[in-house]
Structure formats: C-alpha cells, structure tokens
Amino acid sequence: MSGYLVKRAGFILITLILASIIIFSVTQFLPGDVARIILGQFATDVAVENLREELGLNEPAYRQYISWAVNFVQGDWGDSLVSRQPVRPMVMQRLGNSAMLAGMALLIYVPLGIILGVIAALKRDKLPDQMIAGVSMAFVGLPEFVSGLLLISFLAIGAGWFPANSSIAPEATFAQSVPYLILPAITVSLAGLGYIARMTRSGTIDVLRTDYVRAAELKGLPGWQVLLRHVLRNSLLPTVTVVAMGIGWLIGGLIVTESVYGYPGLGRMLVSAIQRQDLPIIQAVSMIVVVVFSLSNLAADLLYGLLNPRIRVGGK
C-alpha cells in the first residue's frame, strides 16, 4: 500500500511538471507583449524595452520557466498585471468560493443521482427507468445558461426564494453565503446528475445479475438487506470514480454557471484573466485546477481500494 502511494505521488509530480511546462508555454504564445500590456499601448518603445529587461523577458524561455516554477513552488505567484496585487490571496479566495459551490453541488447531485440510478436499475426497462433516463438526459443536454436563467426567473424573481445574483462578498462567512450557493449548485447539479444516475444504473444492473446477489436472495434476506449489503457495496464502485473525476470540473470548469449568477469562482476568474491577458493569474489558476484534478483522481483510486477488498487486501 505505501509502495503504491509513493508510486502514485511520483506520477502526480510528473503530471504537475508536464502541466506546468504546457501552461507556461501556452501563456508565452498568447498574442501581445507582457511589458506592453503592463505599460499600455501609448508607452514608448524604450520604456517597454526597459521593463522587458527588468521582468527578465529577454532571458531564454527555459530560464524564464525555471525561475517561474521555482517562485511558484515557493509560494510567490507574482502580481496581477492588471490590479498589481499579489496573485496568491486572490486565487486562494476564489478557490475557496469554488470549493463551496462544488461541495454544495456534490451534496445535491451525488445522493440524488445514486438514488435515481438505483431506482432505474431496480425498475429496469419499465416506466420509472425510462422516465429517469429521459429527464436526466434532458438536463444534461440543457445548457447551463438556459437552465440557470429558468431557475433565476422562476425561483429567484418569480417566487423570490433565493437571490438572483450570487456575487457573494469576499468577507462573507459560509453561513451567509449558503443562500447564494443554492441556485448555482442546482444548475450545476442538473448537468452532473445524469452522469451519476447512468453510472449507478449500469453498475447496479451488472451486480443485480451476479450469482452472489441471487445467492443472497435465496438466503431469504429481506430486499433492503440484499440491496444495501450485497448490491450497493459493489455497484457503487464505478460511480465513485465518476464523482471524483467531476471534482476537477466543478472547481475549474463552471465558467458558464458562474457567469450567469455572477458567482466569484475560479472559472470566471480564469476567463476574465484570459481576456485581460493577465498572465500570472492564468498560470496560477490553471496550475490549481491541475492540482485539484490530480488529487481528486488519487482520492478516487484510494477510495476505490478502500471499498474493494480485492485491491485493498492483496492476492491470495
């Protein structure tokens, strides 16, 4: 087990290094000159050239990369080219917001998706199954700007239950933020629900067919015991992976939802940084998303091993 962890940690390190190289190179190829962006289009060529020298932009690319990477690891993520503020606190604050939204969404769509998936599997090919498949696929297909606007117009403007705008203030506490999280979380859940339900359904159908479930039924166990002890324990394994893979998407990929609600998450930060060519922010956010992806995948594999004794407790 520990050997496995060491190996996995090594792989994550390699992933991060490769990702950082790609992220760094891509930001180098963005149009426009950093010094020119900082100084504005009316600056003199001399001033731009001096700033380039000062920022080290005339150094060869690999040296720029190394100094950037070393600084990054040491926690110096640079200053925003636009606001001139240090990048790290800004990004970390947005990361916190994204994590809150992700957590709320997971709380909604994972249990719901599992329940729907299990119902669909138990009522396979019957009406409930077809309805669940139809509705959840419709939600997956519905773009977030449509579902988001519908939710806003009905639940926020119409019924007035939730605020229409989710631009929570940086100093807001978690409790204060919760009402602002609900609508975006529902919007995200509609998109994620279908995948969880489908995965759970197919996993459960596979397990329901196994001999050991038949054996459990013939032990005379009540249906719920068969379901909990014998079916779900085995059938939710693939779902665990899908949930964990979704975390990366929840942290860095909710650009549309965040925009619809004006929610201050990482996704929107990345988009606006790209629009303004704010390189340090682009680099920092991208790296954070890669880290979250790697860690959530690792967590999924560890959880998988925890649930599956065949992986946890070696061979014979």
Partner: peptide, 13 residues
C-alpha cells in the same frame, strides 16, 4: 449451493 463458488460469494463482504 450454487455452481460457481467464485461468483456466488460477495467479493466485498
């Protein structure tokens, strides 16, 4: 008692 003992026992219990 079922045919295939490998498949008739829950692997995670």
């Amino acid at each position: 008692v079922h045919q295939d003992p490998n498949a008739s026992i829950n692997p995670s219990m």
